[in-house]
Simulated assay, not measured.
Amino acid sequence: MLDATSTATRPDNAPADHPPVKAEKVGILLANLGTPDHYSYWPMRRYLSEFLSDKRVIDYPSWKWQPLLQLIILSKRPFASGEAYKSIWNHDKGESPLMTITKDQTNAMAKAMEEIYGDRVMVDFCMRYGNPSTKSKVEKMIAAGCRKILFVPLYPQYAGATSATANDQFFRVLMDQPWQPAARTIEPYFDHPEYIDALAKSVEDAYAKMEKTPDILVCSYHGMPKRYLMQGDPYHCQCQKTTRLLRERLGWDESQITTTFQSVFGPEEWLRPYTVEHVAELAKQGKKNIAVIAPAFSADCIETLEEINEEIFESFEHAGGEDFTYIPCLNDSDVHISALSSVIRNNLKGWLD
């Protein structure tokens, strides 16, 4: 991370007892969902409790939801989730892949920003749930002299349970600051030309390495209850547009690509079609060779490395599917960093020109 701190000095013409003030910087704070500190029971329970207690994620009344969550769900789910995390854990670094990749993205973005803005910026990252917390990183930026902070949720498509809750937490932290910095949040970038181009290049690169061209590309997005769509959340529409723009950029017809939704949780209906069911149906229809990409995820994580590569793959295989290729997230690839850099630079206009 680029830590553009500087020595604090007393302002010109200030009295001798005036506290020193840091030279002003602009903070660029990347934000992702989060990760447990470890895959063992108690770290998993703490992480899941924070995540599943968020009203943006589960909006049931607390009196109804919390007893179910604390007494039943969290007595069992940490074990199952812990095993899933263990299967993908970066044991060399003692952290989840999401943490490793987010650090790499931040380092790459810091270099890109330093080349453009020099020491006028400070680039760092935080997590909505778990560590490093939004609070710790905002306070670090303010202490370093950041009088302006651009908050960058790493979600291409907006959803209340992702972008909005990250923004909520960011502004909650600012509420406690005696001297608030100016603050901006980025718009979703689901249709940004460079983001679409980065997705397309990742598909083209993956297809070029295959002996047989897949029968269809499945764009699997994280799901949400259908009720949220009916209440006005734009996520579903933005996912559909991302797929359409990707198809147009690739020059494909509609039969070569499809949109699905994964990670269904709870009893109510979620956005359809469900990825785990749809890939099985594709196999039964004779589409024995498929590729899967996850455009809603900026970094590979439990939902891609474990859910897609294991649960969804097994569903396809058990239905008679033969060739299954997962195309990794954009992660810290040059094209991804370039696309994010373009989004960030556009949002810094007026602050850093």
Score class of each variant (00 low, 15 high):
M44W: 07
L30Q: 02
S62A: 10
S40A: 10
M44D: 11
K55N: 08
Y47N: 06
P43E: 12
K64S: 11
Q66S: 07
A31S: 15
L33Q: 05
L52Q: 00
W63K: 11
S53A: 10
R46A: 12
R56F: 04
L68V: 10
R46S: 11
Y47G: 02
V26G: 07
D54Q: 13
N32W: 08
V57M: 03
Y60I: 06
Y39H: 10
L33N: 06
K55P: 00
P67V: 03
D37P: 03
L48K: 06
P43Y: 12
D59R: 05
I28Q: 14
T35L: 07
Y60R: 12
D59S: 14
W65Q: 01
F51E: 04
L71M: 12
Y47Q: 08
V26R: 13
D54V: 14
A31C: 15
Q70E: 10
Y41L: 04
Y41I: 04
Q66M: 13
D54E: 14
S62Q: 08
N32E: 09
G27H: 11
T35V: 12
R56G: 06
Y39M: 08
K55S: 12
A31M: 10
Y47F: 15
S49K: 14
L48Y: 08
L68T: 08
V57F: 01
Y41F: 15
S62L: 10
